[in-house]
């Protein structure tokens, strides 16, 4: 999106937190300069000149930082007033809104996307993407999630007065065991779909007139530690996971510390992320056509 209205696409990013001061994920923009060139990342400021920071929904509390970190912004004109607004996901899985003002500015104070007075939410790591999915003229809300999969909230209001449905599942969360469970699998042959900490982008990727889904994710690939055969590593690691789980439930910090050091003798862990394309199919009974690449 063109945040500053200079005719060049800009890159908008969230961040997990910031160094040196109270935890909060600033919103960063790399302004486009044309011809595929961009400027350095700079914090996005509100109309008060200060960096935009999500204010906790319920004021300061023990966990209010969850409203402020792990931000993921999306710019769209949510209320049809001609100004881009910022919808920002966070660690908690809720969605803050910084209303757009004229001149490419944004309100310093945020509000929240709500339904019946309660915040819209996904299971951690809110990741908003707004698009008119049902082609009724208003923007619907989509999100990845820390637990994987993707969710959506239909805009059942209007272009200028959004209102939201209950949360619906768009893509089911992965059923793959996580890397710290006793049934964890080695290698990556079993990674056949989006895993956890998903980030969503919706677009007609293949040009057939139907919106498709791109999901980025994060996952851990296990390999036997040096000197161990696969079968032995699998057996010993399964036992290690059980012991670690028991120590965690007992809150035995000494055992957890010891076990964590032993882990390196059993497995090598490599975490990474992929991007997955989920191509939408026509409704049942409709004829499928392939369009031109856009």
């Amino acid at each position: 999106m063109d945040l500053n209205g200079d005719g060049h696409i800009d890159i908008l990013s969230g961040s997990y937190s910031r160094q040196g001061t109270a935890m909060a994920g600033l919103l960063q923009v790399l302004h486009g300069k044309g011809k595929g060139e961009f400027g350095l990342a700079t914090p996005l400021a509100g109309s008060d000149g200060e960096p935009l920071i999500i204010q906790p929904r319920n004021g300061e509390s023990d966990d209010s930082v969850l409203d402020q970190i792990c931000t993921r912004p999306f710019a769209a004109d949510l209320d049809g007033d001609g100004n881009l607004d910022l919808v920002v996901g966070n660690f908690r899985g809720t969605f803050a809104v910084f209303a757009g003002e004229s001149g490419g500015k944004f309100a310093a104070q945020n509000t929240w996307l709500e339904r019946d007075g309660e915040p819209l939410s996904v299971p951690a790591h809110g990741d908003p993407c707004l698009v008119d999915w049902d082609r009724d003229g208003d923007l619907d809300l989509f999100s990845g999630s820390g637990e994987g999969g993707a969710f959506w909230f239909e805009n059942v209001g209007t272009k200028t007065a959004p209102a939201w449905s209950e949360r619906r599942t768009l893509v089911a969360s992965t059923k793959s065991p996580n890397a710290f469970s006793s049934d964890a699998r080695f290698g990556d042959d079993h990674i056949t779909g989006p895993q956890r900490s998903t980030r969503i982008w919706i677009d007609d990727v293949d040009g057939d007139g139907l919106l498709d889904v791109l999901l980025g994710d994060s996952f851990i690939v296990l390999a036997p530690a040096k000197g161990l055969e696969l079968a032995e590593a699998e057996k010993r690691y399964a036992e290690w996971c059980k012991q670690y789980d028991e120590a965690a439930k007992a809150e035995d910090e000494k055992a957890l510390d010891r076990l964590w050091k032993e882990r390196e003798k059993l497995v090598a862990m490599q975490s990474t992320g992929s991007v997955w394309l989920l191509r939408q199919l026509p409704p049942a009974g409709a004829t499928e056509t392939r369009g031109q690449e856009r």
Partner: peptide
């Protein structure tokens, strides 16, 4: 497409060039 550790891929599509 595989990212550097720890992953957390965030994709989007736009005409850069």
């Amino acid at each position: 497409v595989r990212l550097e550790q720890p992953g957390f891929a965030a994709p989007c599509l736009f005409d850069v060039d």
